[in-house]
Amino acid sequence: MTWHLLRDTARPGWQNMAVDAALLDLAAEGGDAFLRLYRWEPHCLSFGRHEPALRRYDVERIRALGLDVVRRPTGGRAVWHAGELTYAVAAPLVPFGGQKPAYAAIHAVIAEAIRSLGGDSALAEPGRALSPGAGPCFSAPVGGEVLIGGKKVTGSAQLIQGDTLLQHGSILLEDDQSLVRGLAGQGGDEPAEASLSQALGRMVGIEELSLAIAAAARRAFGPMTPISADSNRIATHLPRHQARFRDLAWTWQR
């Protein structure tokens, strides 16, 4: 399996989701694998594919605050993408040995990257599954997610299309998820998440984390060829995905 590394620029939510979906197309077509590292500009609230956002979050307040919003193609629950780095892996499932081994292998890379920065990361024990209506993503860890000091530092979700996987996740650098907790009416709750800067007692930058993840991924998966989001391979798949993720009927479907 040939791996490609896409260290992307910051984009709006609808563009970010379209690029991830295009990478899934490419992985399905050609059997290549992609690791993408990116940020969100403007900062963005993303909902899970089946999350009942209309009844779970304060929609009026989201509108009043002028927040950028997108619905992901993957499962899970809401994430506020601000002081964080997002990773995406699009790849055939077979070389990983299936969906669950892929989830574990990718999180092992994230945990290893955090350890290389000095963080004492661990993977969450298997627990009960949470419904899409259970509230913000970072409010509770799910089995296999990356923790520091028992608190969730990475929230991930998957989309399986046939034998191909898209997994993306948010790694908190400095921001907490209090905004999304407040939108869910959980404003006074003790945060269940940790940021890397908090845990390490120093500022961890986007570039530092991005390089650490790329290095850990190369150690785990082998060499990676750089690729640009402007490449023709990706660009040809973008338009139909961009239309979907810009569509308010998609974002506010439930």
Partner: peptide, 29 residues
């Protein structure tokens, strides 16, 4: 944790996705 199904009257060809299913944060067609 969630199953998204079509409505009666909708038509599908063979191998076309008719819905989605979510389990432990993974969505599958």
């Amino acid at each position: 944790v969630f199953v998204n199904l079509p409505k009666p009257g909708e038509k599908f060809s063979a191998h076309q996705a008719f819905g989605t299913i979510e389990a432990v944060k993974a969505v599958s067609d």
